[in-house]
Amino acid sequence: MNRILIAEDETRLAAFIEKGLKKYGFFTAIAPDGTQALNMAQSGDFDLLLLDLGLPTLDGWTVLKQLRSQADNRPIIIVTAHADEKDRLMALAYGANDYVTKPFKFSELLERVQVHLSKEQL
């Protein structure tokens, strides 16, 4: 069973994503701020990270940069309201594997999660 960390401070959105992923057999955990997200990600217990850029305590940019500077190669999918092309390109340059803007359809997010996890298993 794949384990997914959801780093999202919007409680309703985090619960929506978690419910949908659990329905498809994923184990999930929620980190409501950047400090918790970084600590939980560093534990190595997760196969993929869904990361909001606008987290409290540490923003998603900092979490992304710190994980990649530690040679953490797990898939990281940015899930954010930042729809600007500059932000998308910067996130990819910092090592994000994918970028989904809010609002999104759960089916699209699920497909991206499955694609990145299948790449990890090759």
Rank of each mutant, 00 (worst) to 15 (best):
T80P: 01
D98G: 09
P75I: 07
M90D: 07
P103R: 06
A91V: 12
R88V: 06
Y94M: 14
P75G: 08
E111I: 13
A91M: 08
F104L: 14
Y99E: 00
V79I: 14
V100P: 02
N97C: 15
D87G: 02
D87N: 13
R74I: 12
E111W: 12
F104H: 11
L89H: 13
D84S: 11
A81H: 11
L89A: 10
H82T: 10
E111D: 07
A96N: 11
S107I: 14
D87P: 02
F104D: 04
G95N: 00
A96L: 00
A96G: 06
D72M: 07
Y99P: 03
I76V: 13
V79D: 01
E111S: 14
T101F: 05
H82Q: 10
I78K: 06
S107E: 15
K102E: 02
A83E: 04
D84Y: 08
A91D: 05
G95H: 04
I78W: 00
N97V: 07
P103D: 01
Y94P: 03
H82E: 14
L110Y: 03
F104Q: 02
D87L: 00
F106T: 05
A93H: 03
E111G: 09
P75H: 05
E108Q: 03
L109F: 15
T80M: 11
G95V: 02
L109I: 08
G95L: 04
I76C: 01
N97E: 11
I76Q: 00
A93W: 12
A71P: 00
